[in-house]
Design a protein around this nucleic acid. Structure first.
Lengths: 340, 340
DNA sequence: CCCCCTCATGTTGACGATAACATCGGGGCG
DNA sequence: CGCCCCGATGTTATCGTCAACATGAGGGGG
């Protein structure tokens, strides 16, 4: 029952091959291949003999050889940003889980959005004959860097919607509006915004939407506070929030936490003096002090849709329309009515 | 200069091969191989001609073929827990960065510690002929599941030290003692502990060390509060902290944040009434309320040592002694002198 | 009763690279 | 002047699998 350590193999070192299995089962290697690939028309008895030989020998398929013969590898290449932020990381896990269910695994590589870095990452993954590519396109330039290099199906993720043809993302505009409308409805009229890393698509979309919202409602446009996603930056920005501001929209939760820390150091209370909204709904945000009102992004859904769409393309079908994933607002204690 | 779309290749679909390059450069495919692999004794002029042909054709090596011929893939298999906690995730990024510098990429798969799950993950990775394996061994049973299945070098990570022969980890015992001694030195004598997920090595080590510490100092042993790493669980445990406890040691930062939230709801203040220490030093912990005293774990170093050691083994050298990575204590505002 | 067809299986040739061995001009040396 | 060796390159076999075609034993219909 337990795989015996194969005493002698056809060749040294490399573990048993189909030939070894075939010899042991008294069939041809092609029959072994057919059993392995679930071809119809194998006599049940033969199949059983082959499976037994496989078990006896502890045989494992050599996917390199298979990839060479078929041109497919059952691996999805994933290009990620180099810094472990919440969004990309969550999406990665989601992709892994979704891919696992269809027998694929992600091969990971990180890259900045510079063409040379992206180029290297692409070369590496394509050389491994990945069947598909997920590119976390934090920056619009990425799209140019990838385009037309290959005919492997490519899907962009985290583009914040509407940036590329083939892309899956949480609708950033909708999420930002949820946050801002919530604040507006509470009576707030003086807003400031702490941004994510300048230039990154999602940061840019949240910022643009923020400005558009001010415009639409005829609200005063105070200076934008530049952040970089980190709680540190949020803290520094929090120190720079203007007097009289009652509504602070932060581009992510860690910055919101940093900002709140700074505001309280300045003697302001949240939400009595200033209401703060974050973005992402990280697991801790419900236990921040005060519990954070924030925009929830369903990265699990993003990963799932990405993998589903790629499987469609791999199998030659046209993927359905790629809808943006809808975010929702989680109202907690960091927002309240505007002070009188 | 720019790679032209190859108009006609030797065969359809698959992109140019060494033969195509060789033909274009007017040499044999073996010479191309030698150029690609930096063999000595190629006339500079020939080398240049080959490189030019490669550029012209946009040639990319087929690693599947190379893996088949050489038995090596330049891929490291990584088995991770299924849930995206801070430690494993940080380590993954660290591994990716370290691996990239030596030309390797991680192939990721998640698994629980059940033998069947681990077995599947192993089969998958080994079938891809990974050159080495990093196993995040959150649970002691993992070690049995992996052992002796293969002769691929295996390194265990996050074992909390001393659990396996080949393992890299942050010294959990030392970290726990740093936290507890800090509290003790502040005058605290009534301790409670919120654990991580029961059974996981790191949670177990922190818990065991906590109990050992109480014993050594002759302190009263109050009930252990069972957690699961989540802020939620920390909150629930925080509600259950006994009256009169002044020192709360939490097995990670999110639980510490949850617990503080609960304590404050109960009208207790941190650190005046209760001092709280976390574990991990997640980037937000400096901006929690109050800023969290916590044990810093250097996962970057863990990843680096893991990859370095694996490269040694892959290249046939014996890796040096694997020292545990030393954690350090970051003292912030959530701890203070014991109340009188 | 023979032919043809089908099911179950075997045989041969890619796939794209590396490795081991073969070749082919020179140049140094006896 | 011929031999040997070496540096530069070409030729052939091999890795483990899949795909396409070949084979061969039965079974049904004319």
């Amino acid at each position: 029952m337990t795989p015996e350590r194969p005493a002698s193999l056809s060749k040294s070192g490399r573990g048993p091959s189909m030939h070894d299995v075939a010899a042991r089962a008294g069939v041809s290697h092609q029959t072994v291949s057919r059993v392995l690939n679930d071809f119809p028309g194998i006599r049940p008895e033969t199949r059983e003999r082959v499976l037994q030989a496989i078990r006896d020998l502890g045989y494992r398929r050599n996917m390199a050889a298979r990839a060479l013969a078929t041109g497919r590898s059952e691996v999805i290449g994933v290009i990620m940003p180099e810094v472990p932020h919440f969004g990309p990381t969550s999406t990665l896990y989601a992709i892994e889980h979704a891919a696992k269910r269809v027998g694929f695994k992600p091969l990971i590589t990180t890259a900045s959005w510079e063409p040379s870095s992206m180029g290297q990452a692409l070369d590496f993954l394509l050389a491994r004959s990945v069947d598909a590519l997920v590119v976390m396109a934090q920056h619009p330039d990425v799209l140019n860097a990838v385009e037309a290099t290959t005919d492997v199906p490519v899907l962009y993720v985290l583009t914040g919607n509407s940036h590329a043809e083939r892309s899956v993302a949480v609708d950033q505009v909708a999420g930002t509006r949820l946050a801002l409308e919530h604040l507006y409805d509470l009576g707030h009229r003086r807003f400031q915004h702490i941004t994510g890393i300048a230039g990154l698509t999602e940061a840019q979309l949240r910022r643009d939407t923020f400005l558009a919202f001010l415009e639409e409602r005829g609200l005063e446009r105070l200076p934008i506070l530049e952040g970089d996603w980190s709680a540190d930056a949020g803290y520094r920005a929090g120190l720079a929030v203007e007097e009289g501001v009652t509504a602070l929209f932060c581009a992510n939760d860690p910055m919101a936490m940093g900002a709140i820390h700074a505001l309280e150091e300045r003697g302001l209370t949240v939400p009595e003096d200033v209401s703060v909204v974050g973005f992402d709904d990280v697991p801790e945000s419900g236990y921040a002090h005060p519990a954070l009102t924030t925009v929830h992004q369903d990265f699990t859904e993003v990963g799932l849709r990405a993998v589903t769409a790629l499987m469609e393309v791999i199998n030659g079908r046209e993927p359905g329309e790629l809808e943006p994933v809808e975010p929702w607002l989680v109202v907690r204690d960091s927002t309240g009515p505007a002070p009188a």
